[in-house]
Design a protein around this nucleic acid. Structure first.
Lengths: 228, 228
DNA sequence: TCAAAAGTGTTCTTCGTACACCCATGA
DNA sequence: TCATGGGTGTACGAAGAACACTTTTGA
């Protein structure tokens, strides 16, 4: 049994963003310090002694990327000895969802650069971060099917087609427009506004919808479970 | 940002067992040391410097309870400052499934006592262990519905009624015998043996079944997903 | 008037659910 | 012969999947 322990504890964040142009994207930083200097990696860092894990993640994201996250959930903890070449580090990974347009990325000194990468064009990463991302993507795919978290990635008002494209981007498979709308609408937590979409080219503009969180919570309390 | 970190890292195990007499049970130890001396708690302890998290859990279980676990899965990490009254401890919780009859419980010096408790009769626990157990139970309920892990709790050969009772015990709701058998059987990973159940009283003895893991993996590879 | 994107309903099949009687065994 | 527990099938309704044409707009 260990008598004196020498393990560090860190948090890492897999931050997903979505835009209809870029599809599903991921927030990465370029490391400015060893190890893995100059390679891309997940934002994250050591947890402070008096700080909760969630606070640590938010602080690191603020410091390293300038982003403030709304939807955040614990993903998994990675603790294999040797996953960090310096010393033993157990990392508690979180994943989060943000609207990329709501922030301007700002790298700090530890991070030479910050950028969004399309989920299908992730560069070679340091540590075991590729594995963490894969697990996060799996989780997101699953979660999207039984919790209405997709709205965290969209603007407050959005055309139905955006929601549908988001689902197709995350799940990476085609979705039938009519069946999708039927399924989502039946819960009644989407409010249709009178506003219309601004299309860039030709086409019939769609109505904008708004996610009504209150209605969703009421439903949930009544035992109605969202499922796509 | 923290410069020197003083956080300990521990693992805790929520071990579920099942017997048809006792129903769904949980393995707890009575603490022999402070804090929470003499109160019941989850088995667990600090992680060694060179030890993987899974190894740490298995070692602690061996030391504190005499049990060796087969099915083990990471549950969640608990890190709220103050959850341990001594110093900051982040605990990575696992949950596991065992056949209680396969082991004799053996407390060691850190643990004054070890025992199985019915899931509905859990005593007052130290730390935030009640919360951990609740989360584990939720996870088990969900997992049981889309992965055939129930067999980890049963003998190699078992009558169908045992499987059904297990599901009722974990999910805490009645299940229709005929529909349940239809659903499980359609996957074809249960082999019927020619042996019959040994009933204790009167009644028609049922056939014994065996979970065919190979067939299940083949199905899974083909994209067939188990669901109850 | 053409191209692009959104809006909309029906049919068929599959799956979930509800439900009751007979059979084998031990006492 | 009675009590106990195991074995089995059908009918109904709900939900999922497949599928195509019309409408609005900009160029």
């Amino acid at each position: 049994m260990p008598t004196s322990q020498d393990i560090k504890i860190a948090v890492d964040a897999v931050v997903f963003g979505y835009t209809s142009k870029e599809g599903l994207s991921l927030l990465l930083i370029r490391r400015n310090i060893k190890p893995f200097k100059n390679t891309w990696a997940l934002p994250g860092g050591l947890v402070g002694n008096e700080e909760s894990l969630e606070d640590a993640i938010q602080r690191e994201l603020r410091e390293e990327t300038g982003i403030n996250i709304n939807y955040l959930e614990q993903l998994y903890s990675f603790g294999r000895p040797g996953r960090d070449p310096r010393n033993r580090v157990v990392s508690i990974a979180y994943y989060g969802l943000v609207k990329p347009d709501a922030f301007e990325l700002q790298a700090d000194t530890d991070a030479g650069d910050v950028a969004w990468f399309n989920i299908k064009k992730i560069p070679k990463l340091g540590f075991d971060h590729a594995e963490i991302i894969q697990r996060a993507h799996e989780r997101l795919k699953n979660k999207l099917l039984y919790e209405p978290i997709g709205f965290e990635l969209l603007d407050e008002k959005f055309p139905f087609s955006e929601l549908e494209k988001l689902y197709m981007a995350v799940l990476d498979r085609p979705i039938d427009r009519r069946n999708f709308k039927k399924k989502v609408s039946k819960y009644g937590f989407l409010d249709e506004t009178t506003e219309r979409q601004q299309l860039e080219g030709a086409g019939r503009p769609g109505y904008l919808y708004r996610f009504n969180e209150e209605k969703y919570f009421t439903l949930k309390k009544e035992g109605v479970n969202f499922e796509i």
